[in-house]
């Protein structure tokens, strides 16, 4: 059962030298309870396509699509007011830079209570209690104290946990995580990925994980979509993708992993496109 369906999405940006196509006819769908990984290098349009679905792109972006539906509801033609009922409540998002995603002038407790009051409609008192519960759920040590802390007093991993707590506060049905662990150390990355997977399995929400890291894909995804320069290269379940990648670009990406180095030199994507490597 499809939760989010996007067909033929194109995003163009008007620039001084003409229009630039960041996303070029992308199809994407994610089912209930499914973990979809969208993989690509910088410029592949993986973040932009998700921001387009969330309606978070600036006015200079021209978004067009044949279809963009969430749980059967048409996201393209609904009013901004209706859309706000879905975005931030049923679909939530976390970003790459956890410390920059939080407002430095307010305590983390204030910021999560704000989400709970405006998006979940809780009273001030109920929001406070629920915030504490959520902090405990995402494994923030010493949660009572941390609710009174400012973002700069916490580590990157802890800030990402706060972001995750805010993102699951409304009990969303789809969570979009845009490079959630790229700025974090490997041991912290593991903890955050484990937490996301645990929450996903417990709540049964859909999860779209945007990443450039094939290792992260291997450890989390059910299905994988590979993008390059705004176009979809390949889509497959995670096992077939790693076992038998079909598209040359996917093969190039996998063989460029240092752990897959066979000789002295690493095959590069460029050499792949020139046909040097089979």
């Amino acid at each position: 059962m499809a939760l989010l369906t996007i067909r033929n999405l194109t995003v163009r940006f008007a620039t001084s030298t003409g229009s630039f196509t960041a996303v070029d006819g992308i199809d994407l769908h994610v089912d209930k309870g499914e973990v979809l990984a969208v993989v690509g290098e910088s410029g592949s349009g993986k973040s932009v396509s998700m921001l387009a679905a969330m309606g978070l792109l600036p006015d200079t972006a021209m978004v067009s699509a044949d279809e963009m539906t969430f749980d059967g509801k048409d996201l393209l033609r609904m009013s901004p007011k209706e859309r706000r009922k879905i975005i931030g409540r049923e679909i939530t998002m976390i970003f790459q830079e956890p410390i920059a995603s939080l407002n430095p002038s307010f305590t983390t407790g204030y910021q999560i209570e704000e989400v709970l009051r405006y998006n979940a409609g809780l009273s001030k008192k109920a929001a406070r209690a629920r915030a504490l519960e959520l902090f405990k759920q995402v494994g923030i040590p010493d949660p009572e104290e941390k609710l009174k802390s400012y973002p700069h007093q916490m580590s990157g991993g802890q800030c990402q946990r706060v972001m995750i707590a805010m993102a699951i506060a409304t009990g969303p049905r789809l969570l979009i995580a845009d490079e959630p662990t790229t700025a974090l150390d490997v041991t912290i990355q593991k903890q955050i990925l484990d937490l996301l997977m645990e929450l996903q399995e417990k709540t049964g929400m859909g999860l779209i994980l945007i990443t450039h890291d094939m290792g992260v894909v291997a450890e989390t995804a059910d299905r994988v979509q590979v993008q390059y320069k705004g176009k979809k290269m390949e889509e497959a379940d995670v096992l077939s993708l790693f076992e038998a990648p079909k598209h040359p670009y996917t093969r190039a990406l996998l063989s460029a992993l240092p752990e897959n180095a066979t000789g002295d030199r690493l095959p590069t994507v460029a050499s792949f496109f020139e046909g040097e490597v089979k």
């Binding site: 399995e201 290792g215 450890e219 059910d222 379940d237 752990e259």
Partner: peptide
Amino acid sequence: ELFAATPITDVEAIRERVARRKAL
């Protein structure tokens, strides 16, 4: 600990994880 936290792209490991998720 560092080794354990580093994600691996080994096909057998993926097969195991996928089976575990299906069972779940």
